[in-house]
Design a protein around this nucleic acid. Structure first.
Length: 412
RNA sequence: GCGUCUGUCGUCAAGUGGUUAAGACCUCGGAUUGUGGUUCCGAUAUGCAUGGGUUCGAGUCCCAUCAGACGCCCCA
């Protein structure tokens, strides 16, 4: 036999039996985001590699080891690993700074990261996300978080926890990093390999290492004191405080997590995640935050922004299965042309109907009808002659003869 | 990139070194030439991820490769 070609590692077919959940995710996204004034944007699936290097940050894992990059006509091109950079590129390129603020955009679509697949992680996966441009006030952060919660609720997902933190601005964050490095310096040799790495690359990430020996080190009082200290500057602290009071006022429960640090370089001040306890170790369904310097860094005017993304596969695995909908009717008839004609009449009336295309026997047709449809429409020689149709309710076995023009009214 | 576990029909599986690889569901056909979902009968893996090895003999033991699941790193 000829060799079979299989889907690539970390990729999946979305099969018809899962389509119901995907439709729900997409329909609710459109419905809820529209209520908050967001409009959909669709950016290309591949972009110049430089966009992600500068946008996401060239010290991040995503850019360093997870991108699908290829050369074409002397250009370096990359399949998007996330969509904030692409949306920001489009925002700048299409002069959206000229639109009245806030500019609210949402997107959905596939993203690509070259990683080892595991529960809740694939190489091609899908995200829905929102980005809001032009507002520096904490009300924007709050609205974006509340929108995420609202969307998740509309999907019937309530067992979720919102975690927030503030990373401060570049100025006060540098100060904090310096202090963490100072206090950990004597312990450097005792840290695990990953932490030694993080010490230089991203000191903030040090703090939630899962290795026991590192946990012990971080538990020391003098180190805890630095971790727990309020390092952020006055303006950042006020922003964070205002965000919390909005969330309190709107009755959105949240927990503060000082160890919540996002791995993308562009975040400042507010960061947040929404987690589920019903997933594996990849338990965040939503992650986002404020990125006030990204637009400028990518060549646009200085424009503050906040946004988030959700992993659709992760959402999907929290959703109950959707039963496939039955056909309204299945036509049972030994004359394909008569069946076809009736089917087209009914389809014209908005009825979901199929008929046998393969000249199967009467009993086989009826068997098929009972599996896929609510009603069997029996169209035999007698019925054709008298312009009638026998309408059989397959659940109750009741059968009545009705005028052909009247069929639609009997299978609502 | 690292670690752990797994790989028998479309699906769920039995099989624990010894003749022709259970069973169930799905699918298809028949009983049933205009009445289904119940029932009965029948069909469907020359092969146990792939390639080597051990053995008189391997789905069963060993090695490698590939694939999958889960975890680390990181992220949605």
């Amino acid at each position: 036999m000829t060799k079979m070609i299989k889907v690539l590692k970390g990729t999946k077919d979305i099969l018809p039996q899962e389509a119901g959940q995907w439709h729900k995710l997409e329909q609710k996204a459109l419905e809820i985001f529209t209520k908050y004034g967001y409009r959909e944007i669709r950016t290309p699936i591949f972009e110049a590699t430089e966009l992600f290097a500068r946008g996401v940050g060239d010290t991040t894992d995503i850019v360093n080891k997870e991108m699908y990059t290829f050369e074409k006509s002397d250009r370096s091109i990359t399949l998007r690993p996330e969509n904030t950079a692409g949306v920001v590129r489009s925002f700048i390129e299409n002069n959206m700074t000229r639109l009245s603020t806030p500019v609210k955009l949402w997107y959905k679509g596939p993203m690509f990261r070259y990683e080892r697949p595991q529960a809740g992680r694939q190489r091609q996966f899908h995200q829905v996300g929102v980005e809001m441009f032009g507002i520096k006030e904490p009300a924007a952060d709050a609205e974006v978080i509340i929108l995420a919660v609202d969307y998740l609720k509309s999907l019937g997902l309530n067992d979720l926890e919102v975690e927030i933190n503030s990373l401060g601005c570049p100025k006060c964050r540098e100060e904090y990093k310096k202090r963490i490095k100072e206090v950990l310096k004597p312990e450097f040799d005792n840290l695990c390999e990953d932490c030694k790495n993080r010490y230089e690359k991203n000191p903030l990430r040090l703090l939630d290492c899962k290795v026991e020996s590192c946990k012990e080190i971080f538990a020391k009082p003098e180190i805890q004191k630095v971790i727990q200290s309020d390092f952020i500057c006055e303006e950042c602290a006020q922003h964070y405080k205002d965000l919390k009071s909005y969330l309190d006022r709107l009755n959105v429960p949240y927990t503060e997590n000082k160890l919540l640090v996002r791995g993308l370089d562009y975040y400042n001040r507010t960061v947040f995640e929404i987690k589920s306890n019903n997933l594996g170790s990849q338990n965040a369904v939503c992650g986002g935050g404020r990125y006030d310097s990204l637009v400028k860094n990518l060549g646009g005017e200085d424009t503050p922004a906040v946004g988030w993304a959700m992993g659709m596969e992760r959402l999907n695995s929290l959703l109950p299965d959707v039963e496939p909908e039955k056909l309204d009717a299945y036509i049972v008839c030994n004359s394909p042309s008569d069946a076809f004609e009736l089917a087209q009449e009914l389809r014209g009336n908005g009825i979901k109907v199929e008929f046998d295309l393969a000249n199967k026997k009467f009993t086989k047709q009826l068997e098929k009808a009972s599996k896929v449809a609510k009603y069997a429409l029996i169209l035999g020689e007698d019925e054709i002659r008298s312009n009638k149709v026998a309408v059989k309710n397959l659940a109750t076995s009741e059968q009545i003869s009705v005028d052909r023009d009247d069929v639609t009214n009997h299978i609502g």
